[in-house]
Every structure is written in structure tokens, then in C-alpha cells.
Design a protein around this nucleic acid. Sequence first.
DNA 1: TGACATT
Length: 524
Amino acid sequence: MARFTQTEARRQQQPPQPSLVFTGPGSTPTQPPLLLIPHQHQYAQITFPKPMNGSESISIHPDSGNMKDQDAIKLFIGQIPRNLEEKDLKPLFEQFGKIHELTVLKDRYTGMHKGCAFLTYCARESAIKAQSALHEQKTLPGMTRPIQVKPADSESRGEDRKLFVGMLNKQQTEEDMYRLFEPYGVIEECTVLRGPDGNSKGCAFVKFSTHAEAQSAISALHGSQTMPGASSSLVVKFADTDKERTIRRMQQMVGQFGIFNPTVALPFSTYSTYAHALMQQQAAIMAASQGGYLAPSVAFPTAQIHQVGALNINGLPSTPVTPVSGEFREAMGLTSPPANIATSAMPSIVTPIVNGFTGIPHQPNGHPPPAVEAVYTNGLPPYSAQSPTAADTLQQAFTGVQQYTAIYPATTLTPIGQTLPQPPQVIQQQQQREGPEGCNLFIYHLPQEFGDSELMQMFLPFGSVISSKVFMDRATNQSKCFGFVSFDNPASAQAAIQAMNGFQIGMKRLKVQLKRPKDASRPY
DNA sequence: TGACATT
């Protein structure tokens, strides 16, 4: 009851309505915090006549004094800077009506701000107003893409009215799609899937307002014609559900990594273990992909990764790394797909780190956890003479295997939308940057499929990785199965050696040593 | 087995 009272008290002293002040580029804002940066060289400033105090996060809870309409719309808010909490966001959204619930999404393990939120107004009308005033209209400070304000995926149940259209020719645009499908109903969304170069992939999504409309479009158009240059007749079908997509990706991955090929020994051998893990990973990806771009080479599905100061690569703020958004729980519920990512068209995008990883305690300071030996456990202690039982190993795999690396090759990053997307933000990974003496590791016996980002992910739990490099054979473009990882301090490097040297992956054990100093390799 | 920031 005490909590209720507190909440109640807080509501009664609600901050004054903020005033939205637009200032020209040259002017000096006098009253922080700066909340909005609209496009076109204008700054908008939300000012609070009375400064809000402290770091306390105001969660706005639904309760009796805060009823929402029956038809209220839950909004997904994307592209929020990670330093903004509920209390910071509240004023921005309160302009459009009374808020029923506002929740910034946090990683369930690390508590990390996911750069997005769910917002429900008491009134449906407020949500509509907010969406039209804000969606893609403003960019919050530090963000590269405009704020997303749209009905949450959980609202729409869009699967049964969204169509996948295949066998288009590559010249066909959204407009062509619109014309083609318009006769069958109200089109809510229409997107041609494109590669990073902007070229059409020859397919599209078209979302109707109702299932019946979508169905009539299928009946009328599927196989009805062959587009010039297309290899077969037009395909019009309901878009895959998340479930179907998940299954398809799993199949792709199984193919890619030869799970059923006994010569490729993974530390967990049952399909169900692997499938289970993949399902989780897929869900994380779906969650991560709503409303924003994913960094192409290093994407962190934070819902399942225990990040330990991990996103601070070489002092870069974590914000630009991955505009991760969406809610893991929602994704696990396998609801509708992210609207602006061409998920169905993605080739398989996930590489498992073939280890069992156990939970890592959250270390907000970015330092390695104290008991680093406990961080990575695949049931096979480094160079241990003792062999654990198969059951142990399997158990470890089960409990710890949720940590994966998602790779989003640039080619699969196809944000689609009516507005022209800017290229996704790329993390600048320093090229072969060495850390100070004693901070650089040489790692051998890496799995063939590991690239720089997997290597980095594997060592992130031990500290700030300032670079990671897997050596590739120039002729074959295959990994040479060794590489380097540099930390920003020797303790992290030592912790990583302790934990990871001898770590078994598949049939191999990692060799993790300090990199030889430069002069040691020279004979004179 | 191999081997330390390459082409």
C-alpha cells in the first residue's frame, strides 16, 4: 500500500507542462534538458519551469485513477536515447494527453536501457495525435534516426492481413505495388524489399486493413501474371508468421552449420537443445529489430546476452552501437514481425557461439566480474584431466547456451519503409588496434565460422575489448582460426586467459595467450 | 597441426 501512496503522491505533484521551445541554430539554449532536435537546423527544446530532481525513474503505473479507453492503443516508441528514462520522456508525450502507462524497455538481465519504450495513453485519440505529431518527425539528441511512434506490434495482429509478394521485377516500386493491390482493399503498408544498394529484391510486403481484403488480393493476383523479367508468375501469399520465419531460419542455420553432420561436433548434440537456443535467439533478433536498424557487423541481441560493460567499445558510448528495440517478451510471444525489416527475405543471419555460457553478473562499471572462472563454463574445464559426464556437458549446454552472436551482414540489412532509409550505422571497429603491453591476446583454435565480431563477443565479458581480429586466408577467404583480442587493461586480458585458455569448442580447445611483444618476434 | 595485427 505504501507504494501506491508514493505513486499517488507523485502524481499529485506532477511537473508543470513543458513548453516546447524551438530555437534557431545559432541560439544558445538556456534551460536544459534539450530533448528534441527536429530536422532542418532547428532545435526544439523542452524546458521544465521547475527542474526535475534526481535520477529516480518514474514508472507510470496504471491504476484506478488512470483508466484507459477500452480501445486505447499501445504505442511503440523507438529511437530513444538511452539516457532518457520515463521521467524524461513523460513531458514529451504528455503534450498529447494523459498517459496511462509508459515503460522504457530494459534488458531483462542487465537492466540496460533498450532505446525504446511502450506508451499507452488513457485516450485512444492521444495516441493518434502523438503518432502523427512525432513519428519520424523529430530526432532525439544523439540519435541518427527519427523517433518512432507507432502502434506496438502486439496491437495489430498484422500477420493475417500482410501479404508477401514475390516474383516482381526489380524495377517495380512501392507505387506500382500500391496500384496493383489497391483495388482489393485499404493498404496500410506497402514496401518493396531492397538491398543495401537500394535495388529491389523482387519482392514486397503489402499490408491490408483486413484479412478479407488480403485474401481477395491473393485470389485475384496470385499466379495471375508474370512480370517482365521475372522467372515465374506473380506470387501473392500471406507473409510468414514469426513462427514460420523462425522455423525457416532454423532450417537454414541447421543447413549452414551442418548440425546433423557428425563430423561437425558441437558441444551440445541434440537437436532440441540447439533448436531451443535458436528459438530464443530468433526471438531476441525479432525483438532487436523492431523500429530501428541493427548494426551490421556487431549486433547484440541484448535480451539474451549478458553484457558486461560490453557496449562501450573503446570509449564509444553505447548508444550508437545497436539501436536495439522491441520487447523481448513480446517477441517470445511470437507476435507480428518488425514492420520495417525485411525479415522474410533475410538469409540466415545467426552464428551460434558454440559454447555454453553461464550468467555473468552485471557490472555497471564495465570491469570484469570478480569470479571470471565462472563466467564461461562448458563443462570442460581448461585442460582438465577430469572429464565430466556427458549429462553434465549437456546440462551446461542447456543452461548456458543462450549466448549467441547475431551477425547481420550488410546485405541482409534491409530496412524498408516509405521514407528513404539512411545507411545503417556501422560500428567502427578499429583495425588491428593493439592495446598496451599485456592487454593483447593471441587466440588459436577458433571455430572456423568465427569472425571478428564473434571473437569480440566471446571476450567481452572480461572487459572492454578495444579490438578483435580473426585472420583470414586471403585465397580462400576462410578463417585461419586464429586471431587477436585487445583489452584496455591487463587485468581483463589475464582474466580472459584464465577463463578461456583451454576452453573447449567442438573438438578443439581454445589457446589463449598473451600476444608476443613485437620485439620478441624479431631475432635481432 | 598450425603460430602472433596480413593481403
